[in-house]
Design a protein around this nucleic acid. Structure first.
Lengths: 240, 240
DNA sequence: AGCGTAGAGATTGTTCAACAATCCTGCAAG
DNA sequence: CTTGCAGGATTGTTGAACAATCTCTACGCT
């Protein structure tokens, strides 16, 4: 390992390469199969409660049973599937208690991230908020053409990027899981517009508060935001 | 589903039965293998950085390679193993950044749980704190006979039960993961006594504050407690 | 008719053996 | 000292087979 001259530039370059390598390495049959299944589940093609037959899916995905089962395990970790011994794997059916549980976690984590930004404000490089801005604009654009599921995913990505500001790999992992489960809930709700529309503007408001470095107010807003969102889902859920 | 008379007692009984059933169902070869490996890792038999050879372990655990790989997947979910594609599975090597990350999460979650207890104090049934008391006493007993690793596990169980007070399945899962990773860190530290001893008394203090329903003070104490613990691990880590 | 039971069929859990793909090691060449 | 290339070892994946368990239907009993 010879450490060359321009350390600063060198390291950054190496990191981007490492990221690319990781992306290439990602190709394992089990993970590819999991990717396809993940999309089917999060997009609602597989409704909650549905059973995933092994032999059926081996034919569709063109992988062996063992590999398929590895894909199942991967998705189980993300909360997108549940195993029932000797019965098979199913898309989980979440209920109101799960909504409350999920939102409790979301509030704790997201609000803490925003609040924590105040302390490490100086070390935050410029342009760190760009992904958030892109998500806000994506949601606004999708709303203009009435693509409400797309609005939903853009909103979710906003929160994912928000958590990402904390630079905590474990928070990222937890959030990924929480949001995946949340997506599961969206599909049992009949009115995606009412569900997502109010939060387009609120996300923009949040983004602008962050850009203005008003972290304390952003945290307070986010807290109320998540309470309202939880309430909305609970109401839509009870009216199912 | 006929809902009988004494709902309160009935439900509790049904839950214990359901727990037993789940425990029996737990018997899958992959999970049994995972149990054995989990113990080997958390008890330090497998040091961080060690590679787990497939053919070797199939002979020791007497399971097929496929089943063993399922066990590997289970443990990667818990953070006790990491996969490197085409290279094998390894016991992760955590560094100082991981310590900071882990403790950040611990502080957020545990402090929030304690603080949240204030609001739902009335609905907390009596005896809910008994597991905590048992853990405190177990740690004190182990300390008397100089069994410091046992003190460490008792202390950890204390925090696990603390989180359990929130009745959040997802918090329980996250905490399980966090503490498992923390255990990984303990084994690279040479002085288990200095590491665990101070927290025996602090756990008792915490327990007594909870019993006295002084939740706000308990939360504040816990926050400082976790900061101190983090500092201790970081110091021991830098002096490795 | 209602209820419990036995057995057939289907599905999952697990094993085994084989092959393909990739990584690591050591050595030779520049 | 680095580069390139075998060769061996390990992981990734497959397919078939068998055991264990669940589900469903049909039967017999009260």
């Amino acid at each position: 390992m010879s450490t060359g001259g321009a350390d600063e530039g060198r390291q950054a370059w190496l990191r981007t390469v490492a990221a690319d390598v990781a992306r290439l390495d990602r190709s394992s049959s089990a993970e590819r199969a999991a990717d396809i299944l993940r999309r089917s589940i999060t997009e609602g093609a597989l409704p909650p409660g549905a059973q995933l037959s092994e032999i059926e899916l081996t034919e569709v995905l063109e992988v062996s049973r063992n590999t398929l089962r590895e894909a199942f395990r991967l998705l189980t970790h993300e909360g997108l599937l549940v195993y029932k011994l000797h019965r098979g794997v199913f898309v989980p059916e979440l209920d109101e208690r799960d909504v409350i549980d999920l939102y409790r976690l979301r509030r704790v984590l997201e609000v803490d991230v925003v609040r924590g930004l105040a302390e490490r404000d100086p070390e935050l490089p410029a342009g760190r908020l760009e992904p958030l801005q892109a998500d806000v604009e994506a949601a606004e654009a999708a709303a203009l053409v009435d693509r409400w599921p797309a609005v939903g995913t853009a909103n979710m990505r906003f929160h994912e990027h928000l958590i990402g500001l904390a630079d905590s790999t474990r928070m990222d992992a937890m959030t990924g899981r929480l949001l995946a489960e949340l997506r599961l809930l969206f599909h049992v709700i009949a009115t995606p517009r009412e569900l997502h529309e109010p939060y387009i503007a609120r996300n923009r408001g949040l983004y602008e508060l962050l850009e203005a470095r008003k972290y304390e107010q952003a945290a307070a807003d986010l807290h109320q935001y998540l309470l309202d969102s939880e309430q909305g889902i609970l109401e839509a859920f009870r009216a199912r």
